[in-house]
Amino acid sequence: MTISGPIDGSLSEARRVLDTYISHRAAFNFMKVTPEELLDMIFEQFVRNRFDKNLMREWDIDIDSSDEKPSWTAFCKFMDQRIKSLAFTYREGNSF
């Protein structure tokens, strides 16, 4: 009996997902990424998708200019500073 049709497609997708997971996991192990760092990366990506693209570009430029590995704490600090700065600029611009 040969598997074909929707089940075959589901099996192909399942194999692709598993192979992708194994590949990414091996890459993280090779880079010596800790579980905490991995969780930080996931949170950053989740938040990144909800912020303005220009603000995210500033973050990318900021981390590219640093020799340190970006952390969740650094990301939050950066975003907090930018939001405060933008809020101040907005208030100043509208005070006339």
Rank of each mutant, 00 (worst) to 15 (best):
E13W: 00
F43D: 05
I7R: 15
R25S: 06
I22L: 15
Y21K: 10
V17I: 15
F28L: 15
G9T: 05
T20E: 10
R50P: 01
Q81A: 15
E68V: 05
D19T: 09
A27K: 09
T89I: 07
E92S: 04
R48C: 00
D80P: 00
V47Q: 04
P35A: 08
A14V: 11
R82Q: 15
N94K: 08
L86T: 05
T89C: 06
D67F: 10
Y21W: 13
P70W: 04
V33L: 11
G93Q: 13
T34Y: 07
M41E: 04
H24K: 12
D19P: 00
I63F: 02
D52R: 06
E37A: 12
M41Q: 12
P35E: 01
G93C: 10
E68L: 08
S12H: 00
S65Q: 14
Y21E: 10
A14C: 01
I22F: 04
S12G: 04
S95F: 09
D60P: 07
F78K: 10
D64C: 09
M31N: 11
T20N: 09
D64M: 11
D80Y: 02
F30A: 10
M56L: 14
H24Q: 13
S66C: 09
H24R: 11
C76A: 15
L18S: 05
M41W: 11
K32F: 07
K53H: 04
Y21Q: 11
Q45T: 14
V47R: 08
D80W: 00
S85R: 05
T73D: 08
K77I: 03
D8F: 02
I7K: 15
E37V: 06
Q45L: 14
E36T: 13
M1C: 13
M56E: 14
A27G: 06
P35G: 01
F43T: 03
H24G: 03
Q45G: 12
A27C: 01
V33G: 00
M31E: 14
T20H: 03
N54T: 10
D60M: 10
T89W: 00
P70E: 06
I22W: 04
R91K: 15
S23M: 05
H24A: 12
F88M: 13
L18D: 11
C76L: 14
I42S: 04
L55K: 01
T34A: 07
F96M: 08
E44Q: 11
S95W: 07
F96D: 10
F78H: 12
I3W: 05
V33K: 03
F30D: 09
E44H: 14
D40K: 04
L39C: 08
S95M: 12
F78N: 06
A27W: 01
I83G: 00
N54S: 11
H24S: 14
W72L: 10
T2V: 13
D67V: 08
V17L: 15
S85C: 02
D8W: 00
F43I: 01
I3Q: 06
K69H: 14
R50L: 03
I42L: 09
I22D: 06
T89N: 13
F46W: 08
V47G: 01
L55W: 02
D67S: 12
F28R: 05
L18E: 14
A26L: 10
E92Q: 12
A27V: 04
D62Y: 13
W72P: 08
S4E: 13
F28S: 08
F88T: 10
N94A: 11
K84V: 03
W59N: 07
